[in-house]
């Protein structure tokens, strides 16, 4: 850390704006920057977490955002990277305990946000599979397209998310014992899609996303459902452009 007066003044100004210190800056000017800081980061959270906001209401969300911003400095010049730990914060924040599904809802929304801004992957060559030897198949692994994520929660957060999208039925209900969801997040043709696949498909994709071989992933799916259709699952993944590369052993 540079110890010149200029460097110290800059660090002190940012600390004062965050509210960590108040080292004699012009109060009226500092108030403008503090307001920009708080409003800017809170607006960012509202943009990334619209479902959490809808679940708790504007006022409670404003309180959550204020608390999170106060605890969590920004670490990037790209504001789209702010808010990644909001789900973890909610999990540990006492006033949010009454809504135990809130943290996982936020974690899912972060994955949706990241998927939207994920880099493009070049599409897999149509003949990529044709070049494989038969012996390669069992130990084949996939690099999935950037942004593809599989997320499991003991709460029905996939359904909750879907019920908060435009066009969802107005009379949706989730019973307290609705069970958990394993959610697939992926971007297709510029739109982020959230889906709740059948348990065997979810386990298959989760295993592939974790880097398991095709054989191990398929065994995991078959353990759940002996009728798991590998060919249909593979065709679906290809059709949706979710395989970036084949990792041949």
């Amino acid at each position: 850390m540079n110890d010149s007066p200029e460097a110290r003044w800059q660090a002190a100004l940012i600390a004062a704006i965050e509210g960590r210190a108040d080292d004699g800056f012009d109060a009226r000017g500092l108030a403008v920057y503090r307001n920009n800081y708080r409003v800017g980061l809170a607006d960012t959270l509202a943009y990334v977490y619209p479902v959490v906001k809808a679940l708790v209401g504007d006022d409670f969300f404003a309180g959550l955002a204020r608390e999170y911003v106060g605890r969590t400095p920004s670490r990037s010049g790209d504001l789209h990277r702010y808010g990644d730990a909001f789900g973890d914060f909610l999990a540990g924040f006492e006033p949010a305990r009454a809504l135990p599904y809130l943290a996982d809802t936020a974690r899912l929304e972060w994955l949706v946000h990241r998927a939207y801004y994920a880099p493009d992957a070049a599409p897999l060559a149509p003949d990529a599979f044709a070049a494989l030897a038969e012996a390669d198949w069992p130990r084949l692994r996939f690099a999935l397209a950037p942004g593809v994520a599989v997320f499991s929660s003991p709460y029905p957060v996939g359904r909750l998310w879907l019920y908060h999208q435009p066009g969802a039925p107005a009379d949706w209900r989730l019973e307290p014992d609705a069970g958990g969801d394993t959610v697939r997040v992926a971007r297709r043709a510029g739109r982020v899609e959230v889906g709740v696949p059948a348990p065997a498909d979810a386990a298959w994709l989760a295993a592939l996303a974790a880097g398991d071989t095709l054989e191990a992933a398929t065994d995991a799916a078959l353990d759940i459902d002996a009728g798991f259709d590998l060919e249909a699952a593979l065709v679906g993944l290809l059709r949706d452009g979710l395989i970036a590369r084949l990792l041949v052993p």
Partner: peptide, 20 residues
């Protein structure tokens, strides 16, 4: 100015106008 010591203000802050 927008960052110091790895912390960002995500704003357009003034800087010292000095030779250094």
């Amino acid at each position: 100015l927008n960052h110091a010591g790895g912390r960002y203000a995500n704003d357009l802050l003034p800087l010292p106008y000095t030779a250094a």
